[in-house]
């Protein structure tokens, strides 16, 4: 699906939301980008902004050469025109629709039969075909996450946004989902931004890491670069935590 090594996504935005002043510039190609940072640093806001939530912002967002946002030219595409897949922290599953209908929601130009087949195939790829008929309330955290992921991926979005994809998943299911997620992201061939707190996620996915604090990027690089020269106490603690959790989880 993708062309070259040129960045598919580039953004340079400024937004104000309550007490938060977000000012971020970044680019992403096929390698996933992980946004890390303390609570309230603007991680989720950044993803919502990319998804097209009504947040007043200036600057530009370009995806595959197409302007999603260009405040100078007065362009701000609505979410439905962006071709972006979004998995919020809450999963955002539609409570009145079965897992299958949730995934089929966005496939409205297909005939009903093909629609169901495509949705079922997407659920199968994420290992949750067996819950197709179930309602979201009857799913476990891990199943919900997989269904939400299937729903985002089934439309083959040009950009994938994942907000803490493993946070609401219990420990037993987390490792398997982490492996699956890393695989999916590697095979995606599209830019993906994910918010995470977990260093194990960072190790498994091996993304470019962007550290966000108070709405600004304070450091970027891969895990090794961050460990070699942490920019501040927060990043240093992140590296410490990694040593801790390696001890916790012997291989």
């Amino acid at each position: 699906m993708s062309d070259d090594t040129a960045p598919n996504l580039s953004l340079n935005v400024e937004a104000e939301l309550g007490a938060l002043r977000l000012r971020v510039a970044l680019q992403a190609g096929e390698r996933p980008v992980a946004i890390v940072g303390p609570n309230g640093s603007g991680k989720s806001t950044l993803l919502r902004l990319l998804a097209g939530a009504p947040i007043a912002a200036t600057g530009s967002i370009t995806l595959d050469g197409r302007a999603l946002l260009d405040s100078e030219r007065g362009i701000n595409l609505p979410p439905e025109a962006r071709n972006v897949g979004y998995v919020p922290q809450s999963h955002g599953l539609f409570p009145h629709l079965s897992a299958l209908d949730n995934v089929a929601f966005g496939l409205f130009d297909l005939a009903p039969k093909r629609r169901r087949a495509r949705a079922l195939a997407a659920l199968t790829e994420l290992g949750v075909a067996h819950v197709a008929a179930r309602m979201p309330a009857a799913l476990s955290g891990g199943e919900r996450q997989r269904v939400a992921l299937a729903r985002a991926l089934v439309l083959q979005p040009a950009l994938l946004l994942l907000d803490e994809p493993l946070a609401a998943v219990d420990v037993a299911a987390r490792r398997a989902l982490r492996v699956l997620l890393a695989q999916r992201l590697r095979a995606l061939g599209r830019p993906a931004l994910l918010v995470t707190h977990e260093l194990r996620d960072l190790r498994a996915i091996d993304p470019e890491i962007v550290v966000l604090q108070d709405g600004r990027v304070v450091q970027r690089g891969d895990l090794d670069a961050l460990r070699a020269a942490p920019a501040n106490a927060f990043v240093a603690e992140l590296v410490d935590a990694e040593d801790d959790d390696r001890r916790e989880e012997p291989r």
Partner: peptide
């Protein structure tokens, strides 16, 4: 967020 997801789904 479910409403925003619905929007991103077209």
């Amino acid at each position: 967020d479910a409403l925003l997801v619905a929007r991103t789904l077209g």
